[in-house]
Computed example of a mutant assay.
Amino acid sequence: MDSLAKKFLEEDAANKELYVQGIIFKNDDFLDVLNQKFNDYLFRINLYSYIRKSIVFAAMDVKQKGNEIREKEGLYLNVLDADFEEEKINTIADAPIDFIEEIYRDKENIDYREIFVNKKVLEAIDELTDRQKQIIHECIIKEKEEEMVAKELEISQQAVNKIKKTALDKLRKQIGGK
Rank of each mutant, 00 (worst) to 15 (best):
E127D: 08
Q157W: 05
K26Q: 08
Y104C: 05
I45V: 15
G22M: 01
G22Q: 04
V149C: 07
L168W: 02
Y50V: 08
N118W: 06
D28N: 14
A5S: 11
V62F: 06
V56E: 12
L77N: 13
T91C: 07
K162N: 09
K119T: 10
E11R: 10
D28G: 09
E87F: 08
S49D: 15
I141L: 14
M1S: 04
K133C: 07
D106I: 15
L75W: 12
K162C: 02
H137S: 07
D29N: 12
S49Y: 11
N15H: 11
N15W: 11
E85I: 03
R131I: 11
E102L: 06
M148Q: 15
S156E: 01
G74L: 06
K164L: 03
L18S: 00
K120N: 06
R70P: 12
A150S: 00
V33W: 01
E143Q: 15
S54V: 14
K7D: 12
E147P: 09
F38A: 05
K144L: 05
L31R: 04
I55W: 15
D32P: 02
N90C: 15
G22Y: 00
L31T: 04
D94L: 15
E73Y: 00
F57N: 11
L128Q: 06
E87Y: 09
Q174D: 05
K65R: 14
S3V: 15
N118M: 06
V117E: 14
K16R: 14
D32M: 10
D111W: 02
V117R: 15
F84M: 11
D2C: 12
M148W: 14
R44M: 14
I23Q: 03
E114D: 14
N109V: 13
R70Y: 07
D32I: 00
K6A: 12
D81A: 12
E146V: 06
A82Y: 04
I89L: 13
F43T: 01
D2K: 08
D32A: 12
I110L: 11
I141K: 04
D12A: 05
G176R: 00
T129V: 10
K65W: 09
A93P: 00
V149A: 00
D61V: 11
A82S: 10
Y104K: 10
G74I: 01
A159H: 03
K162Y: 07
Q174H: 09
E108L: 06
A58R: 11
E123P: 08
Y50F: 15
F38C: 02
R52Q: 10
D29F: 08
D169G: 04
K142L: 09
K164R: 10
K133W: 04
Y104D: 04
I115S: 03
D28C: 01
N35Y: 15
I141Y: 07
Q174P: 09
F30W: 09
A58S: 12
K53F: 07
K88P: 04
E123N: 10
K142G: 02
V121A: 05
E102S: 11
F116M: 03
E17C: 00
F57Y: 15
E101I: 01
S156F: 08
I135C: 05
E86G: 08
K7G: 08
D94K: 13
F84R: 08
D81Y: 12
E143Y: 12
Q174G: 11
A167R: 00
R131V: 08
I89E: 14
A159E: 05
N118L: 10
D98H: 00
I136F: 13
K164W: 02
K37I: 02
Q134K: 09
G22V: 03
E114M: 10
K170G: 00
Y104T: 09
E101T: 03
R52S: 14
F57S: 13
K120Q: 08
